[in-house]
Design a protein around this nucleic acid. Sequence first.
DNA 1: ATGGTTGCTTAGCAA
Length: 255
Amino acid sequence: MRIVTWNVNSIRSRESRLLAWLTAHQPDVLCLQELKLEDALFPHAAIEALGYRAVTHGQKSYNGVAILSRHEITDVTRTLDDGVADDQARLIAGTILGVRVVCVYVPNGSEPDSDKYAYKLAWLKRLRAWFEREGAADRPMVLCGDMNVAPDGRDVARPAEWDDTVLCLPEVRKSLQHVLDWGLTDAFRQHRPEAGLYSWWDYRGGGFERNNGLRIDHIFATRALTSIDAFVDRNERRGEKPSDHVPLGVVFTGI
DNA sequence: ATGGTTGCTTAGCAA
């Protein structure tokens, strides 16, 4: 079973690329982030024509997540369900072939001294609490999405430019690690230990041309799942109107 | 270099 995560940065701007990528690669599951549109505008027909169904949690202009699957999706949830007043569409989860798939768009956090950064740290804490209530580490679960965190130095091409930012500060790395400590491992890193594999390059300042990349998109899994390979599709950053993120995937067995 | 680019929405915000 191949599970892929991809921040498309507006599904309307990326629809032709998305359909072409799905046709070429045909993963079992594709988790999308930053749809930037309401659910009523989601292009279900075009996706269903390729043999996929989709469950979505969208909102106008910002955020928005979806799970596309070649298989049935059941028990869909769209909230951290912790009583916190929060209208940002950043999570959707569903069960596919017995695997609980959790697709998230973690807040970026803007600047370290901002309210947005405080919201990011709080959101990661709420995500950990959600796993404590929702799941069990001995059950098959996958957490994937744009985590807006580069876990360590191997994930950053130019650490001097990024170490003091909301993607790399020790505090935010610890916050992500705290989620993992619930019972998840970095399935991509398990198969690709080398430095220099990135999932995002800033549009600004020729980020891709200078290969000023970071690995901030991730696929984490519980020990109940076995994976055999992982990949990142760097080529998707080339050509006309790419997203600033590329698809990143893991191949699981026994499902 | 407090810059740079893209997307949503239309001047300014978010990333």
